[in-house]
C-alpha cells in the first residue's frame, strides 16, 4: 500500500469536488458540536421548565386556544407564544431546550456510530481475513454463518436483542464538567452499550465480506506465496500483507457504515429501545404526538440526522471516487 499515492489522490479529488468539501465541512461541524456541547449549549438539556413547554423556535409564533376559568366562567382564550432567543429551536413538552438537546444528541449519535463501526470493523475484518486467508472449510463455515446473519434484517435483529437484553446504559463522565470548566450541564454522557454492541453485531458481516475478498486475492499474490514458502508464520503474513492491502476498501466501507449505524441508532431510539433520552431519534418520537401543535419537536432533530448523514455520505463518495475500491453492495447495510 502506497500511502503517499493514497494521500495524493485524496487531495486531488478533494480539490476537484465541491461536494467533498461540503461533506468535510458538515462533518467537522457535527464533530465540534458533539465535542464542545457543554460550552455551546445554553441550557442544561435535561432541565425541565413546564411553564415554558412547547415554545416555538425563534422567529415563529404559535397560536393555541385554551379554555380557562375567568371569574368563575369558562372562556376560550387565544394564547400566542412567540419564539425567543433563549430557546432558539423551541422547547418540547417538558420545556427542555431543543437546541441544547440537539447538541447532546450529536454526542450519542457519533459515539454509537464510531464505536459501533469500530467494533464491527474489528470483528468483521478479523473473521474475513481468517476466512479468506485459510479458505477451505474455515471459509465455508464462517461465510455460511455470515449468510445466516444476513438473513436477519438488521433492524429486526437489533430490536429483538435490545428488547430482550435491555439497553444496559453506561455513564461516561463528561471531562469538561469534571474539570470544572462548565457547570449546570449533565455530568455524564450515556453510552447505550447494548445498542452499540448490537449495531456492531448486525453490521460486522459487511466488513467480513470485504476483508475476505481482499484476503483471497492477496493470498494468491506471488510475494505472499514466496514468504509462506520461506516459512513466515500465518499471523505474520496476515498482519504484514493482507491487512494493509485491505485497508482502502475497509476505510471506505467504514465511512458508509458510520452513516448506516447512526441511522440505525436513531431508529432504535425512535422505537424507545436505546436507553438514553438524549438522542435525536428519541426526540423525534417525543414530538410525534404533538405534530398538530408543535411541529418543531420532531422536525429539528430529524434535520440534524439528515445533515449529519449527508455529510458522511459525501465524505464516503469522496473516498470512493478517490480510492476507487471495488465494494460489493454499495452502501452496506442500508438504514434499516
Amino acid at each position: 500500500m502506497n500511502w503517499q499515492r493514497v494521500w495524493r489522490s485524496l487531495r486531488a479529488e478533494f480539490g476537484r469536488s465541491p461536494m467533498a468539501k461540503l461533506g468535510v465541512v458538515l462533518i467537522l461541524a457535527v464533530f465540534l458540536m458533539a465535542i464542545f456541547a457543554p460550552f455551546l449549549a445554553t441550557t442544561n438539556p435535561k432541565a425541565q421548565d413546564l411553564s415554558r413547554a412547547n415554545e416555538p423556535p425563534v422567529g415563529f409564533t404559535d397560536t393555541t386556544e385554551d379554555t380557562r376559568l375567568v371569574d368563575g366562567e369558562r372562556q376560550t382564550v387565544t394564547v400566542t407564544t412567540r419564539g425567543t432567543l433563549e430557546y432558539p429551536l423551541g422547547t418540547n413538552q417538558l420545556g427542555q431546550d431543543m437546541y441544547s438537546r440537539l447538541l447532546y444528541g450529536a454526542r450519542t449519535s457519533l459515539l454509537v456510530g464510531l464505536l459501533g463501526t469500530a467494533i464491527a470493523a474489528l470483528a468483521g475484518v478479523s473473521v474475513g481475513i481468517v476466512a479468506g486467508y485459510y479458505g477451505g472449510r474455515v471459509d465455508d463455515g464462517l461465510m455460511r454463518f455470515a449468510d445466516v446473519m444476513l438473513a436477519f434484517p438488521a433492524l429486526v435483529l437489533a430490536i429483538a436483542l435490545i428488547g430482550l437484553l435491555g439497553p444496559q446504559p453506561v455513564d461516561i463522565p463528561d471531562p469538561f464538567v469534571a474539570a470544572g470548566l462548565v457547570s449546570d450541564m449533565p455530568e455524564t454522557t450515556v453510552l447505550p452499550v447494548t445498542v452499540t454492541l448490537v449495531v456492531a453485531l448486525v453490521n460486522w458481516v459487511w466488513f467480513a465480506r470485504v476483508a475476505r475478498g481482499e484476503a483471497l486475492s492477496v493470498r494468491e499474490k506471488n510475494y505472499v506465496k514466496a514468504s509462506r514458502s520461506l516459512g513466515a508464520s500465518d499471523w505474520r503474513l496476515m498482519l504484514k500483507h493482507v491487512l494493509p492491502n485491505s485497508l482502502t476498501p475497509i476505510l471506505v466501507l467504514a465511512t458508509v457504515q458510520v452513516a448506516v449505524i447512526i441511522l440505525l441508532e436513531s431508529a432504535l431510539s425512535f422505537l424507545g429501545f436505546s436507553g438514553t433520552t438524549l438522542s435525536w431519534g428519541f426526540d423525534i418520537s417525543q414530538g410525534r404526538d404533538l405534530l398538530a401543535t408543535s411541529w418543531w419537536i420532531s422536525t429539528m432533530p430529524g434535520l440534524a440526522i439528515v445533515v449529519t448523514v449527508i455529510g458522511i455520505n459525501l465524505v464516503g463518495d469522496w473516498l470512493r471516487d478517490a480510492l476507487d475500491p471495488d465494494i460489493e453492495g454499495e452502501s452496506g447495510g442500508g438504514m434499516g
Partner: peptide, 8 residues
C-alpha cells in the same frame, strides 16, 4: 434486509 427492517 433493509426493506424488511424499514417496513417494521
Amino acid at each position: 434486509g433493509t426493506l424488511i427492517g424499514g417496513a417494521v
